[in-house]
Design a protein around this nucleic acid. Structure first.
Lengths: 215, 215
DNA sequence: TTGTCTATTGGTCGCACATCCAATAACGTG
DNA sequence: CACGTTATTGGATGTGCGACCAATAGACAA
């Protein structure tokens, strides 16, 4: 009796298979890094032969770019849920900052760091990074605009404020692979402080940032 | 006549050779990235057999870490020259910000990005990144302290301000591999603005930031 | 049932890499 | 000049990777 082998082929329609591959690659990207997305690795994960991955993505770089796009936009959707206009903008921004500050966000910080660096060598990935940057920027800008419209925020240029916020988050996230114990609260809270200052909110209006956490 | 081959061996003393190897690796790191530091690549650069590099650095990761350290501390020394107490602290800070904002700094931004990401997989490199972070932080803190002592700056905690400044620089530098055309001046000038605000300086006291530059 | 299409397999090829080691030739010392 | 130390070479080994391709077997239609 051979229990390990199963020469049984499972044949799926191309769209489903492709989606499955991208989803798996995205998961690997978030958990282990974009350089761990290899034909062999993804194939193993799906219990399939490497040649199949290579059939759907003849050039590996394309899969990497696709995986990053899927992971990043998936996370964005969680961070800034659409059609959430029931909640006031202040609350939504507070929740956004809470999540982007927490340890849960480390995985994503690492992914952005990973993608930003790797795009130095991979044009296709660089393209995707640019797209995702735009999505994040526009998503946050929209939130700020709504806050301005509802009178919750006061800012001359929501677009600029959104970029500034993202720059600070990038700066804080840059250390996701490093030791951050002992990081002062005035640093951890930079995003909150910037938002409150630029949006004309009283201090503490967006909640208190997470305490520094260890790895 | 064989002009290309030269079986002539050049024999150097270990310290000199080692230094030469590290310097070459550091140059490669700055110009092309830490992953381009391979035994073969460094050997070729020095016109030497790969085995020799491997003799001085039995484990490749060690050379990568060493190269990063050399490159980073070299650049720091240029950015914040020691024994420069002749110049007022405001001038020195202005020059620091001018350099860290300019296109010339892109190479270094890429290196930090590179190292921060790669240290996810390489413990030895992570160690070095931590060391260099401390050096940069302490160097900048020292400058701020001198400014406070001379009455040029007014800040409650120079150490925190230094970290905040570096976080913003990291955030701005994160996009060194991406397109930054169209970045608003209010973003390019974030470091200047932060420094002037936190140090109690009038706006513009630290000079004007570079206009956004293309790749 | 038979036949066609194509998703999937299994295998190969070449490349770049780190690591290891015995042989060799510079160089300083006697 | 002869000798021993050791910096340096040349080559071998094994690994993981992307890319490529002919053969195979599911699924579906005629």
């Amino acid at each position: 009796m051979s229990s390990s082998v199963q020469p049984k082929r499972v044949r799926k329609n191309p769209e489903a298979r492709r989606a499955e591959i991208v989803a798996t690659a995205a998961r690997i990207a978030l958990a282990e890094g974009l350089e761990c997305i290899t034909m062999r690795r993804v194939a193993e994960e799906l219990d399939v032969r490497p040649g199949l991955i290579s059939h759907y993505f003849p050039v590996a770089e394309e899969l990497v770019a696709e995986a990053f796009g899927a992971a990043a936009s998936g996370e964005l959707a969680e961070l800034l849920p659409e059609a959430d206009t029931a909640l006031p903008a202040v609350r939504r921004l507070a929740r956004f900052l809470e999540r982007t500050g927490g340890p849960r966000y480390d995985e994503l910080s690492r992914l952005w760091l990973n993608a930003r660096h790797l795009s130095r060598f991979r044009p296709a990935l660089r393209e995707r990074v640019g797209q995702q940057e735009a999505l994040w920027r526009d998503g946050l800008t929209a939130l700020l605009r709504e806050g301005v419209a509802s009178g919750e925020f006061r800012t001359s240029d929501p677009h600029v404020t959104a970029i500034q916020l993202l720059v600070v988050l990038d700066g804080l996230g840059a250390h996701a692979n490093t030791d951050r114990t002992g990081r002062p609260g005035a640093v951890t809270g930079m995003a909150h402080a910037l938002a409150e200052r630029e949006l004309g909110l009283p201090a503490g209006a967006l909640g208190t940032p997470h305490p520094p956490h260890h790895r």
